[in-house]
Design a protein around this nucleic acid. Sequence first.
DNA 1: CTTACGGCCTGGGTGC
DNA 2: TGCACCCAGGCCGTAA
Length: 282
Amino acid sequence: MPELPEVETIVRGLRATLPGRRILQVHLGKTDFIDEPAALEASLPGSKIVSVKRHGKFIVLDIEPSNEMAQNFSLLVHLGMTGRLVVCSPNVPIAPHTHVFFELDDGRELRYTDPRRFGSIQMLQESARADLLGKLGADPLETTVANFIAVLRNRRARIKALLLDQRVLRGMGNIYTDESLWRARIHPTRIGAELQDAELRRLFRVVQLVLNEAIRLGGSSISDYVNSEGKPGEYQFRHRVYQREGKSCYRCGASIRRVIVAGRSSYFCPRCQRGPRKKAPQ
DNA sequence: CTTACGGCCTGGGTGC
DNA sequence: TGCACCCAGGCCGTAA
């Protein structure tokens, strides 16, 4: 579910309430998506949440342990396709598939809900966290157009696959990739190295535009996504191509098509986004 | 360095 | 009502 704008929205919500809070107790349901559930139960009670950050699609909670001799560590939460992280009163009915409860010292709870359990929760020391996050590419909202072009221009993979690859850029997912390519009028199967500089500059501009606009509207809610207060976003009403197969293009009226690229449904306008040149038969 | 593919899970929608 | 099938904001491991 959640891509950069959804995760950013959740992080901003959590940042308003979590820093400074202590975790009193942890309750776990299913734990197959948690690296070391026993370590969570052992280390978190009594610890303090220092800060909340986003790194790509990861939510990073920096934690000060209750044991003053122990080192600070981080809790990395990835929401996968259907993960939710919500702060609420313990009286709020428990959504199905809620597997983690953090009791907070203000009487509220931080709950993790994830029907498909494609998400993950990891407790990492500084060096392990740096190893993991260091493998990711630049944040598309923080990088420069020069760097954006540099990481794409020599690649033989298709642009859609490159934008989805978290080692190239961190934070894009299926929705915002399609939305950006449509706005930049670039076909999803174009080869990175075959894009002109002007096209890459255009792509960079619309990626930032789309992501910022989506953040402003609180992300896209298709079926599962809600923010940290349990409320849906509104960017789904601004989608121009995503899940619009057979409907007419907002720009030219042609029928939107769906193809599989990099294993994912990819929506594009066959008229506005021209395909790569086909190989001439020998 | 690539791509393709299957797998991880559950639920919702569709068509027979 | 049941059932088979397809689809879903992500990512990992394997094989080629």
